[in-house]
Design a protein around this nucleic acid. Sequence first.
RNA 1: GGGCGAUUAGCUCAGGUGGUUAGAGCGCAUCCCUGAUAAGGAUGAGGUCCCUGGUUCGAGUCCAGGAUCGCCCA
Length: 1045
Amino acid sequence: MSNWRPVGPAADWTAMEERVLAFWHERDIFQRSIDDRKGADPYVFYEGPPTANGRPGSHHVLSRVFKDIFPRFHTMRGRYVERKAGWDCHGLPVELEVEKQLGISGKPEIEAYGIAEFNARCRESVGEYLEEWERLTDRIGFWVDTSQAYRTMDTDYVESVWWSLATLFDKGLVYESDKVVPYCPRCGTALSSHEVAQGYKDVVDPSIYVRFPLVDDPGTSLLVWTTTPWTLPANQAAAISPDTAYAVVEVDGERLVMAEALVAKVIGDDAVTLRTMPASELAGSAYEPPFGHIPGKHIVVMSDFVTTEDGTGIVHLAPAFGEDDMRAAREHGLDAPNPVDRQGLFTDAVPEAAGVFVKDADRQLITNLEGRGRVFREKPYEHSYPHCWRCSTPLLYYAKPSWYIRTTDVRDRMLELNEQVGWHPDHVKHGRFGRWLEGNVDWAISRERYWGTPLPFWRCDDCETVTAIGSFEMLRDRAVDKVPVSLDPHRPYVDEIPIRCGCGGVAHRVPEVADVWFDSGAMPFAQHHYPFEGEDGLAGHFPADFVCEALDQTRGWFYSLLAEGALLFDEAPYRNVVCLGLILDPEGQKMSKSKGNVVAPWSVLDHAGADAFRWYLFTAQSPWDSFRFSLDVVDETRRRFLFTLWNTYAFLATYASLPDGFTPGDPAPPAAERSEMDRWALSRLDATTQVVTDGLAGYDPTNAGRALESLIDDLSNWYVRTGRRRFWRNDDATDRAAAFATLHECLSTVALLLAPFCPFVADEMWGNLVAAHDPAAPESVHLADWPTAGGRRDEVLEQAMAAALEATTLGRSARKEAKLKVRQPLKEAVIACPPATARLLEGLSQVVAEELNVREVRFVTDAEGLVEVSLKPNYRTLGPRFGNEMPAVAQAVASLDATAAVRALDSGTTVEIEVNGATQMLADDDLLREVRPSEGYAVAEGGSLAVGLSTEITPELQMEGLARDLVRAIQSARRTADLKVEDRIHLHLDGSGRVREAIDAHRAYIAGEVLATELTVGHGLPFTPKYREDGEIDGEPVSIALALP
RNA sequence: GGGCGAUUAGCUCAGGUGGUUAGAGCGCAUCCCUGAUAAGGAUGAGGUCCCUGGUUCGAGUCCAGGAUCGCCCA
């Protein structure tokens, strides 16, 4: 009793996927796949939390399917793989979105609106697209538990983050410092270096060469170059390079001072150098500041950071607006006045531009300078300048107090830990990521914003001591007033909870919130509310075996995870990292809404389905390369791979379900006793199982997938195509059983191997191939164990099959050349090849004969005139032996009598050649043979063999060809008449004399092929036909009539 | 300006440790097959392997320099 479900064409792939999805939900397959492995060795996966306040795009599908494939694989391998989803909730992106919704902008307007209400809106906003994210996650088959998702805004999560910040504070790793930081005046907050990294843009700024007239040397000016004219009002000094020579040059009657090396570049050939001096001579000179309102020393100082790569070798110092400037100012005891407010507007200290945004003030400041004859030259300067990664406002470098984590303390440790991580691609370890770590600077973690984890630091109003609060319990203990039971640990509520300081005073929370990257870097412990819950701590949850994100996360999540892992646990938080490339449009341009080249994931899913989408992403190229993505490429994937797979599967299911078919478990000969084709298929299967296993274990789905694709191609286009007859109306029941058992095992195993890649079709196949027939088998492929290679690898056989394939290819080529169509049988094919190849091919000559439609395949390997032989040197063996004598060797080989040499080699002796006067012996291995049949055949040659076809068509062969044409015509008639494959018919034929002759000669063959239980010939129909047609074959009239018996 | 990566057919990509006809798919052209059929297959055209130099008997592959593109950083 067979339970085969009919398999139609792969027309509606998405409907199949929806069906499988429903099955998973109904039977709770995902949860069971985890629960089944409870107690097993855990395989830890961390979900890097996306922010769900926007629609998911195709690039999210990329990372989500890569996050899916390895956990699925390791689950099947027997590991316990929990998969907790997560959502990043805090941060500027969310605040900005809400600002947009509310139609407000900037901090003053937010505060006017009210922080409590504003944060409430933020909380709502992060869930806005949650439903779509979950729907997409489900539809692409990303198995992750969204019902237990961690959210960085949750009270428990925040408490864990507090614990970590307080721990670091108590270790002395947190400090507050006045530093020049990249600052977004619109958002009103400093940005961390990894945020700055995301916002570089090429812009054109005005650059000017400004005169700083020397006080003691009227008519002489320092020449200073700057690309930020707006910083000139805050000028405090001019810096020069201590190792550089400076020159006084005369230009158009004035004297200018600059680095000697830059004179030609800046002034040109007109410059007349009056004298040069060492930097030390220039140091200490006083000059007239560009703007006079802000007091300062306004002298020349020496500083190491000054170079002569561009500019004039004299740098204007505005300590409030540059990191180097600030350091130099400290060295030389200079002040750092800051005439710019938090919105980036000039204060009244700069009357020329009071109230103007600094970047907009450039023009009027330059005009002002020009009016006073201070501008030597102005030219637009194109450079890349950092912008706010969310709102695109140009960042200012700006001195202000910020909170820092002393990551530089663990820099070396992070480098050590990085050594333990398996990076994919591996060059990231010492390249992009390693170099980034080497240049580590302290992590600026404070943000003067609203929607984020509040820094758990309370500063005493009296003694200014800072206390770090590491838990809500501690907060309750220390709070001046009673803390509500349902505390929302966000602003403004925590701001309103003063605590008692040790000095007896009262402390208030500092106003800042934490960098969102600190939140996400805390997920290994915060997602489990560590250390507040459970005895086991992080056992089984740390470190991760595997994380995966886009390559740009080297400075983002990959870094924040490692930094927090090193600081808190002295351990690398992940063992393997897979980096993913960008999704680009077909022209290689970044997808962006403004360009209108975005491919929405839903359009791909609705049209091509999730399996095709996934397969494309896994196999198109290495994951870290960019994807030139379009619907077309996914569609091509589907046609090429999935349809081929489906056809093969449909073939098996269709024929197995016929009365003479097959039910899994039917007795079949052991693999070793099956035919060459079967053993070859099983050998290929075992080889592929090994490659796919190794590939996935090594985080290389690309080569694993490609190996699988090549197996499917072999099965479809060689094993099934050449073996179709074995499955249907094969009187040899043993052979039939062997064929079915082989193909069934191959496809069942393919379903297992494919399960992590294309979980839908894999489960669909599994259901029909395995689960439907075996009550003991898991009902879903995702509950099954990963297959192991069966040890049936036979490399000699695989080599032989490759030769057989080559022989058929060459034979077809020869047929084409001779214009002999394949349906016309020919007498023989002659395969000329070395004896070793012939031995390989002998067992497969039947297959070759059928493919080429020849009665006989003959091998010619000797040198008796049937073949022509030529010899070439085998460079691989001879090269190392003869080195630079190789040209002479090649010449000697060419002049050998090939026929005699081959005869000698075949009889086991060696061949002598003379190289530069010395006699050398060559063995069989040292010479490559090229053999081809002699005259009288249509020949095609390949690398190691040549195939000749006898071109003579005897009347007998012609009859046979005609009979085959007839069969084809009758089969076509059967189809037109809408008969079932297994319907028996009465058949009546008529035609010319030659046609009748062919029918007489091949009567049994024709009747057998077309399932005719009765075959009559001649005029006048002996029955009422169900269908009839008249036509021509090979120019001969033919009429066909058929009826059901 | 620095780091990392890439550059192979019209397009998308493969090409252990150097070895003498550089491969596949798509597209194109010409065909074949006909009970896997709303499929399948073959043959062919198409290549200065980015450029220049070097190492070597021999370089798509190794080395140096350069060009272009991308990402990251200053």
